Each structure stands twice: as C-alpha cells, then as structure tokens.
Amino acid sequence: MEADNSMVGSVDEEMREIMRLLEGAESTRELPRLLLGVGKEDLALIGDLIQMYCMADALCRGLIAMLQEHRLGTTSDSAYSLNDTDVLLHTKKEARETALNIDKAGIISAVETFEMHRMFRHTFSHWVVKRYSDGKHLVALSRSAPDAKKRDGIALEGGNAKLMVFRIDLLMTELAKIKGHCKFLSQLHAYLEAAPANYE
C-alpha cells in the first residue's frame, strides 16, 4: 500500500501514524479491524462534497458564458463544452478581463478554493471510502493505477493500493468554504441576469 500524505490541513503525527498502521496492516488480517464501513453521516458528507463541487462547476460555466457574452457582444456555448480542468482556468481569465464592475477578487478567490478541492470530487467519486476505527477519519483507497497516478504522478505496482486519509471535522470545514463560494457565485449570477444593461 502506498501512502499519499497530501491531505486537508497540515500533515500531523496522528495522520502519519494512521497511514503507517494501514501500510503495515495491508498484508495481515488487521486491516478489516482498522477500516470500517461508512455510515449514513459519512455518505451524506461524501455526497455533499461531490455535489457542491458539481454545483461549483455549473456556476463557473454559467459565469464564463455571461462574462464572454458581455466582453464579445455575442452569445457562445464554448463554456459548456470545456473539459473540467479548463473550467476554472477560464473562469479566472474572464474575471480578470471583464470590464464589469463586479467582485473580480471574489471570483478568483472562489475559483482558487475550488481548484484546491478538485481532489474531493475525484477521490470521493472514484475511490472506495472507509471509516477509520477511531471514528474521526475517513480513508479513501484505490487500486486503479490510472486514478492513483492522477493523484500524485506516482504509479502503483504489484496490486498495491494508494490511500488518502481525511479528518472528518476538517472535511466539514472545507465543505462550508465551498458552500460559501457557491452562494457568492449564485448571487453574482442573479445580479448579472437581473440587470444586464446596468451593471457597468
């Protein structure tokens, strides 16, 4: 099992110890004792993280389209055909280039938060998630070599698993940040849609 020690917040001794124990337990009967099934609260948190990132993506695409329309003077569907990784780049670009009197710094801050949290959507959508036995952490595991390599560029070998450890309380804090930025972008959408001729 290969450990990825990039996680929410600082890597502390507690998380390093969890990874050490999981790595050592992979080839023993100890692993099922350390990794438990997820409960309804865990599934709700995972679903919330995935859905809020999907909401962020949709809001960014809509914002790109509105800002492009104002800048170019014509409507375009290009925002809706961008791949996921380009949506955030184009949102920042349009925010920087717009002549509209809107909160450009707020848009860029929101996008930078979404960029830092793309791993939540990818990890929780594609990796198996378990609750660690202490009840305070979630552990995501993947035996997919392509998915694991996307995470940190390091290939898996010999059927090993890659793991990520997340403190549940920190995930909830980060979820609140994403929700706050999505609310801001929703309000910006409403503002631009309601006053298309008067917001310069």
Rank of each mutant, 00 (worst) to 15 (best):
L141I: 11
E200H: 07
V139R: 13
L175P: 01
I108V: 10
W127V: 06
R16T: 09
H181C: 08
N5M: 08
E13S: 08
L82D: 14
R33W: 07
S133A: 08
A195V: 09
D12V: 07
D134Y: 04
L185T: 01
K149E: 14
C60K: 04
R20K: 14
T74V: 06
T113E: 14
N83W: 13
T173D: 10
D77G: 15
K162V: 03
S81D: 12
H70S: 11
H90R: 10
L63G: 05
M66H: 06
T85F: 11
S76G: 12
M52C: 06
L163T: 02
E14F: 02
F184P: 13
R61S: 02
C54G: 01
E13C: 02
L45S: 08
H137V: 12
G73V: 09
A110Y: 04
H122Q: 03
D48R: 07
Y132Q: 05
A190L: 09
I154T: 13
H181W: 10
T28M: 12
L35F: 04
A155V: 14
R151L: 08
G73Q: 13
T28C: 05
V38D: 15
A25R: 02
M15G: 07
S78L: 13
G159N: 07
H126V: 00
A148V: 01
T123E: 04
S142A: 04
R16H: 12
V129D: 15
D48I: 11
